[in-house]
Structure formats: C-alpha cells, structure tokens
Design a protein around this nucleic acid. Sequence first.
DNA 1: TTGATCCTTCCCGTTCTGGGAAGGTCAAGG
DNA 2: CCTTGACCTTCCCAGAACGGGAAGGATCAA
Lengths: 134, 134
Amino acid sequence: MNIGQAAEKAGISAKSIRYYESVGLIAQATRRGNNYRDYGDQEIAELRFIHRARSLGFSVKEVGDLLALWRDRKRASQQVREVAKRHIDDIERKIAELQSMRATLNTLVAKCHGDDRPDCPILEDLASGKPHCG
Amino acid sequence: MNIGQAAEKAGISAKSIRYYESVGLIAQATRRGNNYRDYGDQEIAELRFIHRARSLGFSVKEVGDLLALWRDRKRASQQVREVAKRHIDDIERKIAELQSMRATLNTLVAKCHGDDRPDCPILEDLASGKPHCG
DNA sequence: TTGATCCTTCCCGTTCTGGGAAGGTCAAGG
DNA sequence: CCTTGACCTTCCCAGAACGGGAAGGATCAA
C-alpha cells in the first residue's frame, strides 16, 4: 500500500508518516521496486496507534515510549499507567494556567466599557506591569 | 541602562529583548558609544507591558497589536477589548480540548489495574485506533 | 501521448526563545 | 599595568511537529 493510502487509513498526513520515520518513531518502511514506501496491516495499525496517542496530546517522544511498551508483550501495565498519569499531570498544569489567564482576562474585559473612548482598563493593567504568576 | 539591568527590571531575558527588537515588536534601542543598547524608563515600561501581556498568553503578534493600541492615545477601547475577547476564545478552545483529553485519559487510567501484568486497557484503546475528535 | 496524480528527496518557514561560540568593553583588584 | 570576571555584541544552532513547495521520477487512465 502506498503512503497516501496508508495516510488516509491512519488519519495522518503522508508528510507526518515520513517525519515519524525520519525521527525513528517507526521503522524504515520497506520499499518496492519503484522506491515507493510500502505499508501493510501491521504498519497501518502502528500509524493508527500513533494517531490516537497524538490526538490525546502525547508528545512524539511519549508516543515512542508507548509504542515500545505496546510492542513489548511482557510490559507491566504499571509502566503504561505511569506514562499516562504523568501526561494527565501535564495537562492539568496547562489547564490550570489557561484558566488563570482566562479569569484575569475575563475580569479585565468586564471592566472595559469597550466603546470609542480611549481609556481602557485592559491596557492599564498591562501597563502596570503586574507579574502574572511570579 | 544596560540590557541586563533592563531585562531584570522587566522580568524577561536579554535574549528575548533582542528578539523582540529584531522582529520589530519594539523600536531599535539607542546605542551608547560602546555599542551597548541603552534603556530608559519608557523602554522599561514597554518591556514590562510585553512581559505582562505574554504572561497572559498573548502571542508576540498580538502583543504588537496591543502595544500599538497602547501607544495610540486615540484608540477606541473597543478595539482592545476585541483583541482580548478573541484571545479568551482561543484559551477556551484550548481548555476544552485539554479537558476532553483529560477525561479520556482519566477513564483509561481508571480501567488499567497498573500492576506487573501486561494486559492494559490504555494500550488497547490506543491500538483500537479510535478517532479522538473527528 | 498526454495529462493528472501519485511518489521521491530536499530545503525553508513556523513560534519563541535558550545555548553557546567568538570577540569587544568595562570596572575592580593586585 | 595587567589580569580577571562580568558584562556586552553578533551569529548560528536547536527544539516540536510538521506544512509548503520545488525538482524530478513513476504510474495510470483516456
């Protein structure tokens, strides 16, 4: 199967597949006589795995770890769980940061009358140079 | 005032100040005889503004827009408010996406017993190739 | 044959810095 | 006066994860 078909089946772009190959996330694809990459069911399954893991926010590096665990029939599920839990922690930190920004911004937007006059509490706040989080 | 002092006062690195200058976010700093950049109160105020805006998640481009409005004594506060509201929308989209990821991951982690046995619902889910959001 | 649609490699651009090299400056101390 | 250390300058590389697009080869349908 050509890379284009594989990409469509896996839900990622051909560019990304080549990228994943180049950084060693997946093995070098076998080539056919015309030098085209060739993908079979196993490769498609890996690409789908990657697609799903990426869509859950795992970095390419983390996906590599998960793939290694997936390939290892003797892994301990604890290891997988740890990777996932660390990722959840990352996500929660990001959420908290974004929520904090949102709260501040909502407050500022609420204070700004938003008409054609120039005075603006939002700009005043920014100009005050308050540190946001430290 | 040297760039190092300015950086400390504004809460950003000297590297970043040079970068902001290079991309036109701030004007080229005046130079002293030794070719060192020189910063005064006005420049410090701008740098602080930038620091604060960046810490609220505005992109460098958006900070440029906000700086332009700040410098324009005849701006309409409505414009500032629009920039801020668009940014809040961005943030909310990101929060929603992260929350969705977190929910899925929490479900999976809860299903995984996390011991030394190899069977793992997390890997099974990833391998199933479910699309996450479309 | 021709055109359209694949595929290949290659390099550049994105965003926002951080790291570090090579070299100029300056202030203090021996 | 000389050295040492802490500044400053420019410049280039790195990262994360691709997308765009060029130049050229392969395949396929009419």
